[in-house]
Structures are given as C-alpha cells and as structure tokens.
Design a protein around this nucleic acid. Structure first.
Length: 254
DNA sequence: ATGGCTTATTGTATAAGA
C-alpha cells in the first residue's frame, strides 16, 4: 500500500501534473493540500476517469485539502472537532483499515504575526484531536504540509533560517508533541541522503541549487510503524513546466 | 540574497505563500 502527500499550490493549475503522477505512481492514497478551489470546481469527474475516488474540503483562493484513492473512502470527516476554523485545512477518512488524516498546517507568516499564534493554537488543537482519534483508530497516518522543518538537517541553511517560521523552537516543540502521541516521521525511519527536501522557493533558482526545506511529512502511528517499507521524496514533478513549489512524499507500507 | 517567483482575484495592483 502506497501513501502519498503533495501540496499542489492550486489544483486548477496542477491537475495535469496530478493526473500524470497518479497514472505513473498509482498511489493507494494521495493527500493534496492547497487545492485553492471551492468544492463545486473540484475535478471529481476527471479523477474518476483516472480511477480515483475523492473527498475534498475547499475554498476559493486559499487552503483546500483532498484525499484521493482508488479504494473506498469511508467515514469522511472535515476539520478539527471543537476547533472552529473558517479555513479548510483538514480532511480525514478510513481507507483499507487505516485512518488517513490530511492536513495543511498553517504557515505562520512570521514569528511576530497573529498568524503565528494561530498556527501554534491550531497545532495544539490538532494534537488534542489526534490523541482522541488514536484511541478510536490505532492504525493512523497523518499526511500533509506541516510547514515545519523538524530539525536543522531538514533545512538547506539553518543559519540563514534562524528566527524564521517553519524552523522556530515552538513549532519544533509542537512537532515533538505529535511524536509524543506515538506518531513517527516515516522519512526518518530509513537512511536518507543529506539535503533531502520537499519544498524549494520559486525564486533564486531554489530548486536547481537545492535551497530547500523538508516540511511535507507522513507520520504513522505505532501500530503502523513496523509496516513501513520505504519512504522517499519524488523530485520529478518539481522539474516539470509550471510546477508546484512542493513535491510529493511517498510511503510504502506492507 | 527578506525577495529576484507564482498563485489568485471580478484584477491592471495587492495579498499570500514558505
């Protein structure tokens, strides 16, 4: 079983890349973030033709999350219960006996911004919610754009990023709180190349120079840890014309 | 190297992303 996550930065623009990618990779689950479109515009038909069912929670211009799968998508849920949020950032469902949680964690903008406090509050609410979810669903995976580089080795130039969002200590502490629930960063269960990133700035030839961050993650619960076979980042889509600034992360489960 | 890019919007400049 192959699980994947990809921030597409507008599904309207990126649909051709997504269709091409699912045809080639045939993921059992693909979580998308930043679809940036209302549900009425979501391309259910094109995905169905490609053999994929989908659930989506979207809005115009910003945010928007979806789960795609060729399998049945059961018990869908939207958002974080008991955390009122206009922004469409979470969608969950059961697929092949695994609780899939697709999240687009807030960026935070800057440490001084109100959006940063929103990010930290949001992470706390997600963590509380997942603690309860894990009681109900021991087999759980949290996939998405976390907007957190958990360690310095996930940052191309830690010195240059000091004091920025995505790498700050409170954000990393929030990541460790997710780990404390018994969630494992599946990428780090395996030996990986140095300089492995999932996002590169559009500017400054960031991709060509590998000036990236690893901020897209697939965490799995204790019950799934031993099923992890391989986790990797597919840089292929980042090389296409008009790419998303993020590229897919994939986890193979036995 | 604090943005040189890219997205969206009922646009022709602005906001946001990371």
């Amino acid at each position: 079983m192959k699980l994947a996550t990809w921030n597409v930065n507008s599904l309207n623009v990126r649909l051709p890349h997504v269709l091409e990618w699912i045809a080639a990779e045939k993921p059992d689950v693909l979580c998308l973030q930043e679809t940036k479109q209302e549900d009425a515009k979501f391309p259910y038909d094109a995905l169905k033709e490609a053999g994929y069912n989908a659930i989506h929670s979207g809005q115009k211009t910003y945010n928007g999350v979806a789960i795609l799968s060729p399998h049945d998508i059961e018990n869908p849920a939207f958002g974080i219960p008991e955390f009122a949020d206009e922004q469409k950032r979470v969608v969950s469902a059961d697929i092949n006996g695994i609780r899939i949680v697709c999240a687009y964690i807030p960026n935070g903008q800057s440490l001084e911004s109100e959006k940063y406090q929103y990010k930290l509050n949001w992470l706390q609410a997600l963590t509380n919610h997942l603690a309860a979810e894990l009681q109900q669903h021991p087999r759980l995976a949290l996939l998405g754009d976390y907007n957190i580089a958990p360690e310095d080795r996930d940052v191309h130039d830690p010195k240059a990023w000091e004091g920025q969002v995505l790498v700050s200590e409170p954000e990393r502490e929030a990541f460790r709180k997710l780990q404390a629930l018994g969630l494992h960063d599946s990428f780090r269960l395996f030996e990986q190349e140095e300089g492995s990133f999932s996002w590169w700035d559009y500017r400054m030839a960031g991709f060509r120079r590998n000036l990236g961050l690893r901020i897209d993650h697939i965490m799995v619960s204790d019950a799934l840890k031993d099923n992890c076979q391989r986790c990797w980042i597919d840089k292929g889509p980042r090389k296409l014309e008009r790419p998303s600034d993020h590229t897919p992360v994939i986890l193979e489960l036995s």
